[in-house]
Design a protein around this nucleic acid. Structure first.
Lengths: 209, 209
DNA sequence: GTTTAGTTTAACTAAATAGTTAAACCATAG
DNA sequence: CTATGGTTTAACTATTTAGTTAAACTAAAC
């Protein structure tokens, strides 16, 4: 690859990385283009030159973060044989997504709080595919008398809600520790994975017959 | 009460109500003082005169919304006798809070996404009291061999996460319906309460021995 | 009717903000 | 070395935004 292309790619990657962090931290409206440029160590005109305006930048960031989430989840679930295994595959796939994109939870939360008005269309379609998958798992499991009857949406929101809250509330909880020494932090090395094992265990117990 | 005081109170109430809606919809940074004033049908200088700057307004709104949440929850739980009844009391009290303050979920989600940097100190203290209560319920239940061992924080985030997601994702889900006729809306009359019955049932099943 | 204190307003200020532009710079081709 | 196209930059523009102020208005006290 030409040095010039590498140079461009480096700039674009730094811009996207900085944008993701700042959109996650401040939301679309609260994010400042100058701040993104400063964090990417580029002149802000480069953002407009390489990517586009603020909204185009945001859409690009969301696209990158959501990229293949639904596809990977549905494929992983398809490979599992039994409803219980499918459910575990679904939960683990969601957990892997958040593991790979730790800044996704705050972005999801803000978008949900805003009615998803900044979501690209592809993200909406991906959500439908994921819900279809969850619906299929739950219905199969109920049919085989392995799961109780549960609304797939409630189950999905329980899984996503719990995982994103565990991840996103950590700074707030750290603040609580500064107020009073309390069990509000989960073990450091586990905030990414072990609580998600808890989530899997609790969810399975919730719906298994 | 004097007519002048009534007039003032009316203005202040309209300002606070408009501010709550707009802070819920756009967050602290995304909210516009001119928009809040327009919605309250007041000149924006009145906001500064009666309440203060943007941050003071936000703190006031949060204070009003969080008002007594922790107190009412701890009192309600204290009145229950058994761990199972205490757990139900806790879940129902959270549900009642969100029922009474439907704009609280999006505000909570944004604040958590922002590390709670705009939370007043009293809110942080209230969260600790709530977590203490949940911890006590879970420990008593485990001691009496009614509940499995579960980290109280994970349980609490599961309850709050599920409830706030159910409430806050409704506009996004409505948009999904516009894309494809799918079961992504919960029954209209139930979006406030029946899913919360589901949450109670699922949570109980998750941790009961 | 006058005075007073509180409420409300139009107009304003200073700073912040997204976005643009012409020019400088740089790597590559010839 | 020169020309070219792409990248980067400093400076800029227009608009938005939070916050302020002096004056007008209003209700109540005297």
């Amino acid at each position: 690859m030409k040095a010039q292309e590498l140079k461009k790619q480096s700039s674009v990657e730094r811009i996207l990385s900085a944008a993701l962090e700042i959109f996650a931290d401040s939301g679309f409206e609260g994010a400042r283009i100058d701040e993104i440029a400063a964090r990417a160590a580029v002149n802000k005109a480069m953002i407009y030159y390489h990517i586009g305006d603020k909204r185009a930048l945001y859409a690009r960031v969301l696209h990158d973060v959501f990229s293949d989430t639904a596809t990977r989840l549905t494929q992983r679930v398809a490979r599992a044989q039994t409803p219980v295994k499918k459910l575990k595959a679904y939960i683990r796939s969601m957990a892997a997504t958040f593991e790979q994109h730790p800044l996704l939870p705050p972005i999801l939360m803000r978008e949900f709080a805003s009615g998803g008005r900044n979501f690209p269309e592809t993200v909406a379609e991906d959500m439908l595919r994921i819900l279809d998958t969850v619906s299929s798992i739950v219905k199969q499991g109920h049919k085989k008398k392995v799961f109780i009857h549960v609304h797939p949406l409630v189950l999905h929101l329980m899984v996503v809600g719990t995982m994103t809250y565990i991840r996103s509330t950590r700074p707030v909880r750290q603040r609580l520790v500064d107020i009073a020494e309390k069990e509000v932090l989960l073990p450091e090395s586990e905030d990414g994975s072990a609580p998600l094992a808890d989530v899997e265990k609790l969810v399975l117990r919730a719906i298994k017959r």
